[in-house]
């Protein structure tokens, strides 16, 4: 591999890792607090991209504001999903998973009905230009994703470790009964976790909108990646999910560059299988979450 290609691939890996991390932390957090897996998480990402399509490409709002708008919009969708699906099925992992699988199809069909199928949406690139690193051209729109992810992940870390409400989420993930005895409302914590999960998936989709094919099905592959990331990271571990996201980012990008995208997914899954064999709890998983 030539140096230029290598640098380019490295940069793309970091960008992919940033997106995987931003999407996966929400899935891991929600799983940790609820012990339920959200199949519609990829559609939260997809709808985040459509928020940018509507507000930025159609309505002409500044890109930055359109990305911000995705946060409350998809957070609200996360809250609704918690209230209407996860709360009634609490404790029944399969019911929650299947019901959100249903939600996946509903959201995909709705997006197709409203905005059309087939063609991807044209979203003009708000930040033109490219950074030149060792001869490799890296588009600013891509570069932008990295600091955005760092800020978002840093904010989540601060919230979970320095704010009492966020610590309540961790307490709830570690022992819901003991948390309830401290006056921590399980319902409030599951709502909060799903709100954050929605916000993070939504903002990731929004950031990706100008450099990704925006279609109703764009969340599908990412959901599989996010599940692999969360499993490799150790199910409920946020830190593990971030670490695994960047590892997967490198694996996918390098294998795609050298071979092709299908091989990349195969290698990613093989990597997951390998981790599960050598460390069944995942990279940073705990024996009993």
């Amino acid at each position: 591999m030539e140096l230029t290609t290598f640098v380019q691939t490295m940069a793309n890996s970091v960008v992919s890792g940033s997106i995987y991390a931003t999407v996966s932390v929400g899935l891991a957090l929600a799983f940790g607090v609820m012990k339920m897996a959200n199949h519609a998480h990829g559609e939260f990402f997809m709808l985040g991209a459509y928020v940018v399509y509507v507000f930025y490409a159609l309505a002409g709002m500044p890109f930055f504001l359109a990305v911000l708008a995705a946060i409350p919009t998809i957070a609200a969708l996360g809250l609704l999903t918690e209230r209407l699906i996860f709360r009634p099925t609490r404790g029944n992992v399969l019911a929650g998973f299947m019901a959100t699988a249903g939600l996946t199809w509903i959201l995909q069909v709705l997006a197709g009905r409203i905005w059309g199928l087939g063609f991807m949406k044209m979203i003009p690139t708000p930040y033109m230009g490219a950074a030149n690193i060792a001869g490799a051209q890296i588009g600013l729109q891509r570069v932008l994703i990295v600091p955005a992810a760092v800020i978002l992940l840093g904010f989540l870390w601060f919230f979970l470790h320095r704010v009492r409400l966020g610590k309540g989420l961790r307490a709830c993930a570690q022992d819901p009964d003991a948390a309830a005895l401290q006056g921590i409302s399980i319902n409030k914590m599951t709502s909060l976790a799903m709100g954050i999960a929605g916000a993070y998936a939504g903002v990731a989709g929004a950031l990706m909108a100008p450099i990704h094919a925006v279609t109703p099905y764009m969340g599908r592959d990412l959901l599989i990646t996010a599940f692999i990331v969360v499993i490799v990271g150790g199910m409920a571990s946020i830190e593990g999910a971030v670490l695994a996201a960047f590892i997967l980012g490198f694996i996918h990008t390098f294998v795609t560059t050298i071979f092709d995208a299908t091989s990349a997914i195969m290698v990613g899954v093989a990597f997951m299988a390998f981790i599960l064999i050598v460390k069944p709890t995942g990279l940073m998983g705990r024996a009993k979450a």
Partner: peptide, 8 residues
């Protein structure tokens, strides 16, 4: 069994 939050 105490049930402290082990990772806090």
């Amino acid at each position: 069994n105490r049930r402290v939050f082990p990772y806090m």
